[in-house]
Amino acid sequence: MNFYPFHLGDYASHTRHLSLLEDLAYRRMLDLYYTTEAALPVEPEKVARLIGMREYVHEVADVLSDFFVISDAGHTNSRCEEELALYRAKADRAKSANKARWGGARAGLAAEADEEFEQSSKGRATHANLAPLKSETRSETELQTAQIATNNHEPVTRNDKPINNLPIKKIKPKSKTAATPQQCEEYFEYAWEDYPKTSACTRIAAYQAWNARLAEGASPVQMFQGAGSYADFVLDKQVELDEVMHVSVFFGPERHYLTDWDERPLWKHEETYFDEEEY
Rank of each mutant, 00 (worst) to 15 (best):
A89R: 12
E37M: 10
V60G: 01
M53N: 07
A113M: 11
A206R: 00
V156T: 05
E116G: 08
D275S: 10
H58D: 12
K122Q: 15
S71Q: 13
V42H: 09
Q222P: 02
F251C: 01
P173Q: 12
F274V: 07
G74T: 10
T145C: 08
V234P: 00
E43S: 12
V57T: 13
F68K: 01
V249L: 14
G74I: 07
S199E: 11
Y87C: 10
D114S: 10
A128D: 08
E254S: 11
E270G: 10
Y87I: 12
E277C: 09
A111V: 15
P265A: 03
A128H: 09
W261S: 01
R264E: 08
R255W: 01
L235G: 15
E45N: 10
D10P: 06
K197F: 06
T150V: 03
S229G: 04
A61G: 06
D62I: 10
A191G: 02
T180V: 11
E81V: 08
F224T: 12
L166G: 11
L8C: 14
S229T: 11
C201R: 00
G226P: 00
A218W: 01
E140I: 05
K161H: 13
E83D: 03
E216F: 12
M53C: 03
A205V: 14
R16N: 05
S229H: 03
E112N: 05
Y4I: 08
